[in-house]
């Protein structure tokens, strides 16, 4: 535990809890993330992974607990606040407005405006063209609504958002769930690329094998509680699976 864990963590989530109508969706969960690191969140449906991450993204407000970013306590009460901390989220549901084109989606909520306060569509399209040429050179349908795009193309619009706005912390909620083999590989390459640039990435997935390949550390949640966080080289896939299913950390028992 030497390489990543020296210095201040990029994100330090401490004892976060949130309830929905008496059910503790997240129960006293703590997790941290260092620059250039990919931390995977694993667990069954309803284990609290997405909820935890949505608190960080500003979509939900925690009942208790703290979020520290770069060693400072952060107040995240809305998606806008999260953006101010350079947190970008790529949602499972993609969170794109289907009726708008790629540029409008990429810049949604952060439109480029001209001197008169009017949205500058031409400039946004030009910027989109530039970033897409980098991320996905096959991307040509700039004028079409994103509903006309394939799953991979839609995903690249969502990822372009994170890249374009210089995110420091990227949250990916099942980024490959709807994708084919090639497209999944593209996302994996991109995660490697972002990592090299020193970004911190939270990755949520059901695919344990994929997580073992992509992540530096994996955290397992069950019933809202954090079961344990392990470096991927220290555990086997079976260890992870038993954590997911039994809700116990086998290494704790061994020790």
């Amino acid at each position: 535990m030497s390489r990543a864990e020296n210095g201040t963590p990029l994100v330090d989530i401490r004892n976060l809890s949130i309830s929905f109508g008496g059910i503790k969706a997240v129960d006293n969960a703590s997790i941290d993330l260092y620059p250039g690191e990919v931390v995977g969140l694993l667990g069954h449906n309803g284990a609290g992974k997405s909820t935890l991450i949505k608190i960080l993204a500003g979509a939900y407000q925690a009942d208790s607990g703290e979020i520290w970013i770069n060693g400072e306590k952060a107040e995240i009460n809305s998606p806008r606040d999260a953006r101010d901390y350079n947190i970008e989220t790529i949602y499972q549901t993609l969170a794109l407005a289907d009726n708008l084109d790629a540029a409008s989606n990429l810049f949604l909520g952060r439109e480029i405006t001209n001197a008169y306060g009017m949205v500058d569509d031409a400039r946004m399209e030009a910027e989109t063209r530039k970033i897409m040429a980098r991320l996905n050179p096959n991307f040509k349908k700039l004028k079409d609504p994103v509903s006309a795009l394939s799953g991979g193309q839609r995903q690249s619009v969502a990822i372009a958002r994170a890249v374009y706005f210089d995110a420091k912390i990227v949250i990916m909620d099942e980024p490959t769930a709807a994708l084919g083999v090639h497209e999944t590989q593209m996302v994996a390459d991109l995660i490697g690329e972002l990592k090299k640039q020193g970004l911190g990435i939270f990755l949520i997935s059901h695919d344990t094998r994929e997580m073992m390949e992509l992540c530096d550390r994996v955290s397992v949640m069950k019933n809202g509680r954090m079961i344990g966080t392990e470096r991927v080289e220290d555990v086997t896939e079976d260890d992870i699976l038993s954590m997911i299913i039994l809700g116990k950390n086998p290494r704790d028992q061994a020790a």
């Binding site: 949602y91 549901t93 969170a95 407005a97 289907d98 009726n99």
Partner: peptide, 12 residues
Amino acid sequence: GGNPEAAKLAGI
């Protein structure tokens, strides 16, 4: 109109 949830998540 296209996706109320996406609009919300985009900070609108």
